[in-house]
Amino acid sequence: MTATLSEPAAVGEVPTFDVTLRIRRFTPETHGDEAYWQEFTIQAHGTDRLLDALHKAKWDVDGSLSFRRSCAHGVCGSDAMRINGRNRLACKTLLKDLDPEKPITVEPIKGLPVIKDLIVDMEPFFASYREIMPFLVSESQKPTKERLQSAEQRERFDDTTKCILCAACTSSCPVFWTDGQYFGPAAIVNAHRFIFDSRDDAGAQRLEILNDKEGVWRCRTIFNCTEACPRGIEVTKAIQEVKRAMVTRAY
């Protein structure tokens, strides 16, 4: 590895280096029911993302290596995984920002059943999301034009509209790891997005849902979710705001 790597690589100058991926694999059809580690050493370029390295491993070495991905620039939420112990999107993690001198550990996100390699069953995650009524409920007559909303009212819930449902937050939460019934940060973030929307009339119902024993009070304010969010959402803060709204009924 060369010194230029710690600097942003100028376009056109792409230093190359070798990197080793240590990937947690689970392929019950061919290797039985035990997960195992496999190492891939591949050549990478200065601007490569971890996703590029995974693609190289799959495309050039072992086609059975399986992971989800789509947009490759951090907006679709397909490729959340545990990278050197932290939840991140593979397509938003530049290899040069990790330490390529050491093997990079890649595992599936935790707390959801692993199906194959880095692919987990997302259904429990989406089921929690669906439970918090993640849609605008408006009881007033719809105007013929748009409803009015001030820029300040719009700003109130801006942060939580950024969520891409990648599950990086929920699957980084130690409470969720041990209690799969917990709604988890992502569901609460999406409840927040509507509770604090001035146009919405179902805030009380959502707070009731989240007042459940598996609701917001399970949160221990650990901040893993905030650290994990690839969209920079202040997840823990949003959860705190929902807790506060539950106590004060002001939202």
Binding site: T27, S64, S66, K116
Partner: peptide, 10 residues
Amino acid sequence: QDKSRQFNLD
């Protein structure tokens, strides 16, 4: 290379 049934993205 992947001959399996589940999530054969190859």
